[in-house]
Computed example of a mutant assay.
Amino acid sequence: MSSPDISLVIRPRGRPIKNLPETITVSPDGSASQIFERIAQAAKFSKDRLRVTKGSDGTPIPNTGNVTVYQTGLRNRSAVDVKDLGPQIGWQTVFLIEYFGPIFIHPLVYYGRPFIYGTSAPPSELQKLTLIMVLLHFLKREFETLFVHRFSSATMPFQNVFKNSAHYWLLSGVWMAFWIYSPNSAAARASNPLITYAGLALYVFGELANLSSHYTLRNLRRPGTTDRGIPQGFGFNIVTCPNYMFEIISWIGILLVSWSHSTILFLIFACVPMGLWGKKKERRYRKEFGSKYKPKRFAILPGIY
């Protein structure tokens, strides 16, 4: 026998939301997502723009189907605060915009060498190879965004797209391309073929292993849900996030081919957030799966971090 419906008091926060209801009625046995649906339906407002928190302590209410209203701690006549997060943009769209930056900028600088550097000398074989490697990497990311990844959140605030894109458009785009395709770069001069072959081997291994990890993570989540299983398989018994580990291996391969300090800087800036995300994911796995999950000592790099 299901529990009787309860009434929640709605309190606005921040910018006003027209037609925001004063109260809503929900089932305590129903999913927490019904709170968002009831508010959005009454206010004729997009639920993706809503941030709902408990009035008692400010704890966020998850817009998910695997947590009930009762489990959030809400009871009859509990107050919830509702905030408008502003215009939203889909996570998939954000990823597509981010990765398009290097795809557009690297060929632009490569073929614009006469105008940028004032040189008529053709690019070296290493510069050409670096261009191909970078383009294939980000084209793979675009493919994964469209056909592999499943996103736990539908949207994010529109203004964040500029902040998120800066890393790729400026650092892996303008910064890397300018130094790699310069006539004075290390890649413009002769190199050790053995190092180049080693870089290519690491790159191919890293890219394929990274793709495999993403398919493993995709298969843990049922379509249309945020439910997850325990990740297992190649790399997952070594670190929490082998997809990040293989990503780093791939970029080390690009570094060995390009021999550019700009690649080192991009790799450092990429490792910091990946390490933080990996640690956060490890904590979430331990909390979510308990004794079923085998804790990992390292998040992204075995023996290092």
Rank of each mutant, 00 (worst) to 15 (best):
residue 160 N to P: 02
residue 252 I to H: 01
residue 174 V to K: 00
residue 78 S to G: 09
residue 121 A to P: 02
residue 18 K to T: 10
residue 125 E to N: 12
residue 87 P to K: 05
residue 43 A to F: 13
residue 3 S to T: 12
residue 269 F to T: 15
residue 137 H to C: 06
residue 34 Q to P: 12
residue 94 V to D: 06
residue 233 G to D: 10
residue 48 D to H: 11
residue 35 I to S: 09
residue 222 R to Q: 14
residue 289 F to L: 09
residue 60 P to G: 04
residue 194 L to A: 09
residue 230 I to N: 03
residue 136 L to F: 13
residue 58 G to C: 09
residue 194 L to N: 01
residue 40 A to K: 10
residue 196 T to K: 03
residue 209 A to Q: 10
residue 29 D to I: 01
residue 72 T to L: 09
residue 293 Y to K: 13
residue 138 F to A: 02
residue 207 E to N: 12
residue 258 S to T: 11
residue 181 Y to P: 08
residue 274 M to A: 14
residue 300 I to Q: 05
residue 150 R to D: 08
residue 289 F to R: 09
residue 187 A to F: 05
residue 180 I to Y: 10
residue 11 R to V: 12
residue 287 K to L: 05
residue 77 R to G: 07
residue 158 F to C: 04
residue 299 A to N: 13
residue 208 L to Q: 04
residue 237 N to W: 07
residue 62 P to R: 00
residue 148 V to F: 08
residue 268 I to V: 15
residue 184 N to H: 15
residue 52 V to K: 04
residue 165 S to W: 06
residue 28 P to C: 08
residue 188 A to C: 08
residue 227 D to F: 00
residue 93 T to R: 04
residue 21 P to V: 09
residue 8 L to I: 04
residue 178 F to A: 09
residue 190 A to K: 06
residue 145 T to C: 14
residue 225 T to L: 12
residue 194 L to P: 00
residue 25 T to L: 13
residue 9 V to W: 05
residue 236 F to K: 09
residue 116 I to Y: 01
residue 290 G to P: 08
residue 41 Q to N: 14
residue 148 V to L: 05
residue 24 I to Q: 08
residue 143 F to I: 02
residue 93 T to D: 05
residue 126 L to S: 14
residue 146 L to C: 04
residue 117 Y to V: 00
residue 250 S to D: 06
residue 64 T to M: 07
residue 218 R to G: 01
residue 112 G to S: 01
residue 156 M to V: 14
residue 176 M to W: 03
residue 241 C to K: 15
residue 54 K to L: 12
residue 279 K to F: 06
residue 289 F to W: 08
residue 191 S to L: 00
residue 137 H to L: 04
residue 205 F to E: 02
residue 83 K to A: 13
residue 230 I to W: 02
residue 102 P to N: 00
residue 136 L to G: 05
residue 76 N to V: 06
residue 55 G to A: 13
residue 26 V to D: 09
residue 68 T to A: 07
residue 91 W to V: 15
residue 293 Y to H: 11
residue 129 L to M: 15
residue 105 I to F: 00
residue 85 L to K: 04
residue 108 L to G: 00
residue 294 K to T: 15
residue 199 G to A: 04
residue 75 R to M: 14
residue 302 P to W: 05
residue 112 G to Y: 03
residue 139 L to Y: 04
residue 82 V to T: 01
residue 193 P to Q: 02
residue 46 S to T: 09
residue 177 A to R: 01
residue 38 R to E: 15
residue 249 I to D: 04
residue 23 T to H: 14
residue 209 A to V: 05
residue 171 L to N: 02
residue 187 A to H: 05
residue 258 S to H: 10
residue 204 V to C: 06
residue 8 L to P: 07
residue 99 Y to L: 11
residue 190 A to V: 01
residue 134 V to K: 05
residue 196 T to V: 14
residue 106 H to S: 02
residue 4 P to Y: 04
residue 303 G to F: 00
